[in-house]
Amino acid sequence: MLAGARAASISQSELENHDVIKERVLHGLLFASACVAVLGLVLIFAFVAVRGVPIFAKAGVVQMLSSTDWSPMDGRFGILSFIVGSFAVTVGALLLGAPLAVGAAIFLSEIASPRVRSIVKPAVELLAGIPSVVYGFFGVIVVVPQVRALLGGSGFGLVSGCIVLAVMIVPTIAAISEDAISSVPRGFREGSAAMGATQWQTIKNVVLPAARTGIVDAVVLGMGRAVGETMAVLMVLGNAPVIPRGPSDPASTLTSIIILDMPYASGDHQTALFGIGLVLLLLSMSFVAAIRILSRSRKAR
């Protein structure tokens, strides 16, 4: 009897032990999964940096960032024209795309009937998923010839790049801004309307200020997408490693030069391309930081 009871109690405790071990192992596995994101980020930094940093040491950070002379075969690695190119294309795309996107978002949230909204909103969100290479293809086939007809030249250049990129970031900015605008409490609108404000006065004075941080987030996100975008820009920009003098001149960006040169680059040339990748990585990280600071200041408010 006694022995039997003991045996039972032993197996009971073994069972519990087994469960505890199982829980511990699982906990460890889950923890390890969570660490993959951190590990991935660290590895990305490490491998891009290890392969890219030597060029900064060799050619000089200041020299690289301030020179436009990109002649990798002759050992000259000025990347200023790519930085200017990325900057110009991003700013141009934002100037074209952001007002359009935010305007469309306001329209959808404040003016459109529920039926129109229920069709257009998901359609815009779906279009945010179209691959960038398709936007680039559309640019080559449709936008470039139009620009060529209007401005002369080859049509491949800054203007085409900005237009294609603008079209591409509009769905993203519009969808996120619309979320921000439509989450403004209805009471704000009613309170304003009840004092005799016109619809536009209500939008301008109450709704937009209340949704401001959300809209800024959306634009910053669109900006991050624009800076990091490769294919769409590459396909229509003309890809000359010079600072564009006019709106229809060809240009290159930090992203496009990597794709263009990588297939045949070797030695210092390849190292320089990784160096450019590092610059891009730091840029994108600073956008994350910017969004974090923005959202933190919003919480503090």
């Binding site: 409490p185 009471g187 704000f188 009613e190 309170g191 304003s192 309307a193 009840a194 004092m195 005799g196 404000a197 016109t198 619809q199 006065q201 109450v206 200020p209 209340a210």
Partner: peptide
């Protein structure tokens, strides 16, 4: 004009709705 109408006929709501300002 509904805006002019509401200027003459104001409204207080069930839940207080001050603007975020």
């Amino acid at each position: 004009d509904t805006a002019s109408l509401r200027r003459r006929v104001g409204m207080i709501f069930q839940a207080p709705n001050p603007f975020p300002m």
